[in-house]
Amino acid sequence: MKKIISILLMCVLILSMVGCGGSQDSSSDTEEEQIVIGLSQEGLDHPFMVTQREQIMDAASKYPNVSVIATDGQNSVVKQVAGIEDMLSQGIDLLMVQASKAEGLKQKLTEVHEQGIPFMFVGKPISGTEAVTMVSMDNLDLGHTIGEYIVEVLTDRNGAPKGNIVMLEGIPGDQTSEDRIGGAKEILADYPDIKIIAQVAGEYRRPEAFNVMQDILQANPEGTIDFVYACNGEMALGVIQALKDAGRLGEMPVVGLDGQKEELDAIKAGELMATWLYKPAGYEGFDAAMKILNGEEVEEFIIIPGQRIDAENVDVSEPAF
């Protein structure tokens, strides 16, 4: 008896679930000339991707004849591919893809292209596919900007472009991290008096960054570090936490990259010197998508310029996510 009840319960659950999902679906079926955009993201467990989805949904809500369906890969290429297939089954007019690595998707994207459905990347640029366009920030360019900023700050502090700096990279080998760190290093290469005394991996995560920064602080006594550059926001926040713990907050400037809300708070509190907005490109991506669907020409790369947030403009800025 219990067994039957459990199975019935299960069915009810499925039905109820389906009920909420179904209503979304049916509202979009009634219109004539309905345009369906598919959004495939690698995951939904990071504010960047959640904000991106929200931005695209928000932008689409202004067009009554456009609906967006979305799936995400739960951080697995296999699941992302399955999601794309499921959206193809439903029939989509254009596919927006967000992925950190597209190698596993290439095969499927080629098929999408062959079916005559245009696709584009948002948030992260990926080369070597038939994508109509890529709308995103440029990490290498951001790296250059930050490199120049470091030179500027150190010149201000020490009277000349010299000093010891610490860099926290993300996941070693990850393209985003390589570009963000590498870009800065390209600039710094021209200044022999600026020494990178430590470049370590913080895995993009706060606890890891906290741990490695603690070690660095142990190894480098007061007055020997002039600058810390963490290549994402979470790590910058971890660094600040480590400085607080060691009682050395304010000893050196810290910058991050992303512009997430907590970073902005930290800038307001005077703990973080600056960060750069890394926009999820949802609105910009959607605009490009609409252009494609309307048959307009779009550029192969649409690069959204980075924007520095520091004490001067933090009060009037919106976080990236």
């Binding site: 389906v18 939904l44 399955a82 959206m87």
Partner: peptide
């Protein structure tokens, strides 16, 4: 199940719950 939830546009959070 995951095909269905994809088809009716339910995000992965709910898929995990299911």
């Amino acid at each position: 199940l995951s095909n269905l939830l994809n088809l009716i546009n339910v995000p992965s959070y709910a898929q995990m719950i299911f």
